[in-house]
Amino acid sequence: MTWMGICWLLYKMNVKARMQYRLNFVLMTMLASVVTVAEFLGLAVVLNAFGSIKGWSVWEIGYLYGVLMTAKYVYRAFGSAINNFEPYLVNGQLDQLLLRPMPLLLAVITSRTRMVGGELLQSLTVLGVCIARLLSEGRVTPWILPQTLFILATGTVIMFSVGLATAAIGFWITRVEDLSVLTDNATTTACQLPLSLFPDWLRTLLLAAIPFGFINYVPAMHIVKGEWGGWTLPLTGAVAALSLAAALWLWRIGVAKYQSTGT
């Protein structure tokens, strides 16, 4: 069996395990949908009250939101363990995974699965509605569909890379939950909106250090706004590839430094 086959088998086992408690599973899916709708409602209410922000309409900002959150939930579906890596280091769970006869990163990723059906449904609905509206207004061409699929893929890679780098830093500092609030939560909150709103230092941070700006804003400046050239798409792909390479490099160094939690 190939590594992919093993991963798929472990993924299915995780899903089955999560569905063992049917009432909890249904409850979790329903609540997850409500939570994500409520989160979007906060932003939607502000946009509804004021129509647009700095030249970005409700539908354009909805597009930014839809791309970002879809990439986030696809990443969370398979990278849930990376996103919550602290317990692996604090409780010594990583020691058990080190004994498995498979690459450590795959062992970590397949050790936990998060069901994200409710959240994905919400983000894809927002994205679909916004794309349909932009198409009907003639502000974008049907090319938006393949381009959006491309940036969803690159966005997921960027999300995963930043998550993996944050987790890898845990090999040195152990407690990474609060760092993840900075690298994941704060950046996600910021990138739901056009980066042009923010001061230069924050924009630079979101483009150079934690490149979440490349998940939606940079490509959207071409796909939706048409203000930047087509070069933004290959650049986005290059940033995703570089981020992944850097994160994997950091992970490898971190694993070599790992000293377990002791007893």
């Binding site: 502000v46 922000i53 900075l182 939560n185 704060a186 909150t189 910021a190 909106l193 709103l197 923010f198 001061p199 924050l202």
Partner: peptide
């Protein structure tokens, strides 16, 4: 601090 600055920027 950054969260607050994001909301303020809006």
């Amino acid at each position: 601090v950054i969260f607050g600055m994001i909301y303020v920027a809006i």
